[in-house]
């Protein structure tokens, strides 16, 4: 289903969910939950947005049923830890590549995805100062290295 333009801001979270469908359904679930919450704040009044959000809600309810025996879904604290570990692992992979001077598309994506997942963690409550800093750094690094690679420059 096409994403209405009013909900453009949630497209990256929905894409991350799709990419994790098989690899890590818990990550996919919370990305969609975050997208749902954000989407409702953006626009849940116009018919096209309502239709889209109802469909997303149907998907979330089905996922929740399918994952009902998974503690990361049934217990908030476990889910929070799962997402945090995953985001950190992704951040560390990209950071290690960065420090080793290995610049490539995959590390840019890892930096960017870790920043998106740190946004997603806010479904559990306010982000810690450490997570806010990691998110800021990861987003900045992703943009900077992406631009360097695009312009054929070597990141410093």
């Amino acid at each position: 289903m096409a994403l209405p333009p009013q909900l453009k801001a949630i497209q990256h979270y929905l894409r991350t969910a799709q990419e994790h469908e098989k690899r890590d359904p818990v990550v996919a679930y919370y990305c969609r939950l975050y997208a749902m919450q954000t989407g409702m704040k953006l626009d849940s009044k116009t018919p096209e947005c309502r239709k889209f959000l109802v469909k997303l809600m149907d998907q979330l309810e089905t996922m929740k049923k399918d994952l009902s025996d998974n503690e990361s879904i049934t217990q908030e604290v476990v889910g929070n830890a799962h997402l945090e570990n995953y985001a950190l692992k992704m951040f560390l992979y990209a950071d290690n590549e960065d420090r080793a001077g290995q610049f490539h598309k995959n590390m840019v994506k890892s930096f960017y995805t870790s920043s998106l997942l740190l946004d997603v963690i806010s479904v559990f409550g306010e982000l810690s100062e450490e997570n806010i800093q990691h998110r800021k750094y990861a987003r900045w690094k992703a943009t900077y290295i992406h631009n360097c690679l695009k312009n054929g420059e070597t990141p410093q």
């Binding site: 919450q37 409702m40 009044k45 309502r50 809600m57 217990q75 889910g79």
Partner: peptide, 27 residues
């Protein structure tokens, strides 16, 4: 949008909010 249209829209919105909080409740 007339008043009927407005009430239908807000009822649907409420339903979505309720489904979201049910989803969150069980987390």
């Amino acid at each position: 949008m007339g008043s009927v249209g407005t009430s239908v829209a807000s009822a649907e919105q409420d339903e979505l909010s309720q489904r979201l909080s049910r989803l969150r409740d069980q987390i």
